[in-house]
Deep mutational scan, measured.
Amino acid sequence: RSVMTEEYKVPDGMVGFIIGRGGEQISRIQQESGCKIQIAPDSGGLPERSCMLTGTPESVQSAKRLLDQIVE
């Protein structure tokens, strides 16, 4: 099973929602998708923050879907 890492951008203002209280939302996304998510510590003043998604292609797709649901 191939593991890939893909960069994915999320709106900087939504990072708090994505991480959730005490990190529980991001933990849930990682468990549900099976994908490891690393969010950049800051956006460098840009409107979007970079996330690194690491996992199988299916888990990366799944994580993107879950992130999109939060961001919308």
Score class of each variant (00 low, 15 high):
52 M>C: 14
63 A>L: 01
26 I>K: 06
43 S>Q: 15
11 P>A: 07
43 S>K: 06
49 R>H: 05
12 D>V: 10
54 T>S: 11
27 S>T: 14
38 Q>N: 05
45 G>H: 03
63 A>P: 00
72 E>S: 14
6 E>M: 13
69 Q>L: 08
44 G>D: 12
39 I>G: 01
22 G>K: 14
9 K>G: 03
32 E>S: 07
47 P>Y: 04
65 R>V: 14
49 R>W: 02
18 I>H: 02
72 E>K: 04
65 R>D: 10
26 I>S: 02
4 M>D: 07
13 G>K: 14
59 S>R: 08
50 S>C: 12
2 S>Y: 06
17 F>S: 15
6 E>V: 08
10 V>L: 12
32 E>Q: 08
23 G>Y: 07
20 G>W: 02
20 G>E: 14
10 V>I: 15
16 G>Y: 05
26 I>E: 02
23 G>T: 04
65 R>A: 14
38 Q>I: 14
68 D>H: 10
61 Q>F: 11
37 I>A: 02
44 G>H: 06
52 M>R: 12
66 L>H: 09
59 S>A: 14
38 Q>E: 15
61 Q>L: 14
10 V>D: 01
61 Q>V: 11
22 G>W: 03
71 V>Y: 03
67 L>R: 01
68 D>V: 07
25 Q>P: 04
32 E>L: 06
1 R>L: 04
4 M>G: 04
64 K>T: 08
36 K>E: 12
60 V>I: 15
66 L>W: 04
15 V>Y: 04
29 I>M: 10
34 G>S: 03
58 E>L: 07
71 V>S: 07
17 F>E: 15
6 E>S: 13
66 L>Q: 11
65 R>T: 12
70 I>Q: 12
55 G>A: 01
43 S>C: 04
3 V>G: 06
63 A>G: 08
18 I>V: 11
69 Q>K: 13
72 E>F: 05
38 Q>M: 10
71 V>Q: 13
54 T>L: 06
25 Q>C: 09
60 V>Q: 03
16 G>M: 05
66 L>V: 05
57 P>K: 10
27 S>Y: 07
44 G>W: 04
3 V>E: 14
59 S>L: 01
67 L>C: 03
71 V>P: 09
56 T>S: 13
72 E>C: 11
24 E>I: 10
60 V>A: 02
20 G>K: 04
9 K>V: 05
48 E>Y: 15
20 G>R: 05
70 I>V: 14
60 V>E: 00
60 V>R: 13
59 S>P: 01
53 L>R: 00
43 S>P: 02
33 S>M: 01
52 M>V: 14
12 D>I: 10
3 V>K: 15
19 I>D: 06
46 L>R: 13
67 L>G: 01
48 E>V: 11
48 E>W: 14
56 T>N: 11
31 Q>C: 14
44 G>K: 11
60 V>P: 00
57 P>M: 08
25 Q>E: 15
52 M>G: 04
5 T>W: 04
67 L>E: 01
60 V>K: 02
2 S>H: 03
46 L>K: 13
68 D>N: 12
26 I>T: 06
63 A>R: 00
46 L>W: 04
49 R>Q: 07
52 M>W: 13
45 G>Q: 10
58 E>M: 09
27 S>G: 12
72 E>R: 15
54 T>C: 06
38 Q>F: 11
4 M>V: 10
34 G>T: 04
61 Q>E: 15
46 L>F: 14
56 T>R: 09
11 P>N: 04
4 M>W: 03
5 T>G: 05
39 I>P: 04
63 A>H: 00
24 E>T: 11
20 G>L: 02
71 V>M: 06
21 R>H: 05
43 S>R: 06
3 V>Y: 14
59 S>I: 02
54 T>N: 08
27 S>M: 12
34 G>Y: 02
19 I>P: 03
